[in-house]
């Protein structure tokens, strides 16, 4: 039994990354109608940001956790103003191709500078070792990742549901035109929301640096799963993407445990099932799909 629980916890930790990435992807999609293919690249830049700051400026991981997402958020906003913005009124495929191109460029720039092999990154020593969780002991760092992502998701949820800004963003995410017609300037919030989504991706990257291989392809490998997560949770549904992130994490972990050979396809089987039974996703609204 504790074996199963431990696997579920493994799933929650990997789900933490899915949740943070899917959350960002989801708000961007909701607000801008843009499927941001560059999301994985910004996750990768987050990890590289932490590496570069440590390597060249000796900046600790804790500071990187603060600085890198802010930097990337700003870069995201600039990109939105310069490029994404101009294609928003066109067919969604244009922005999809644009962000796909941006992802390839970012990835190749990193590859030109750092090559294809992974860069070393040590975890902060205060998070070395493991903690006793009662039923089993678990690496301290990974427990931290889980707690941190849950807290952050909770915080984002609080901001979205309790503040006026949050309500505007949520309303424009879920029903942009209606919100607009109520006299709220949705466009004002487009750029900050894009930057915020990118910042979350960068944050996930910083969290990943100490426990995963830091290389130019780390985001490209992950982005497909994240898309599946967003579809499972329901396109544009903020709560759905977070919940689906943790669910997919747990399903994959259980799959890895019992049928390792299947684990790679499990997430897509889940996505197919969800699409068959609830085409709008687990937490999506039916009408949203037909709109």
């Amino acid at each position: 039994m504790s074996g199963l629980l431990q696997q579920l916890f493994n799933g929650l930790v990997s789900g933490s990354f899915y949740a943070l990435l899917a959350l960002g992807l989801s708000v961007i999609f909701g607000m801008l109608g843009v499927v941001n293919f560059a999301h994985g690249a910004f996750y990768m830049l987050g990890a590289f940001g932490a590496f570069v700051l440590l390597d060249s400026a000796g900046l600790s991981w804790w500071l990187a956790l603060l600085v890198v997402p802010i930097l990337l958020g700003v870069i995201g906003m600039v990109l939105e103003r310069l490029f994404v913005h101009r294609l928003m009124h066109l067919f969604p495929l244009y922005n999809f191709l644009l962000t796909f191109g941006i992802a390839l460029i970012l990835q190749d720039l990193i590859r030109m500078k750092y090559g294809v092999t992974s860069q070393p990154y040590a975890r902060p020593s205060i998070l070395d070792g493991s903690v006793d969780l009662g039923l089993f002991t678990y690496p301290k760092y990974q427990v931290f990742v889980f707690v941190f992502s849950i807290a952050l998701s909770g915080l984002v949820w609080l901001v979205l549901s309790r503040t006026r800004v949050g309500m505007i963003v949520r309303a424009s995410t879920e029903r942009a035109e209606l919100t607009q017609s109520l006299g709220i300037d949705v466009r004002r919030w487009v750029t900050p929301v894009f930057g915020f989504g990118i910042a979350l991706a960068g944050l996930a990257g910083v969290l990943a640096a100490p426990m995963r291989a830091v290389n130019s392809s780390m985001g490209a490998d992950l982005i497909i799963v994240i898309f599946a997560v967003v579809v499972i949770g329901g396109l544009g549904s903020v709560l759905g993407s977070v919940a689906a992130g943790y669910i997919v994490g747990m399903v994959t972990a259980i799959g890895n445990f019992y049928v390792p050979a299947l684990s790679q396809s499990l997430v897509f089987v889940l996505m197919a099932l969800v699409l068959l039974l609830r085409p709008a996703g687990l937490f999506g609204r039916e009408e949203g799909v037909h709109a």
Binding site: Q7, N10, S14, M218, D221, P260, S263, Q264
Partner: peptide, 17 residues
């Protein structure tokens, strides 16, 4: 002997197993 996905960034299942 367990096959793992490729590429894969999460081996925690195998580590706890």
């Amino acid at each position: 002997a367990d096959p793992t996905p490729f590429p894969n960034d999460n081996f925690s299942t195998f580590m706890t197993k």
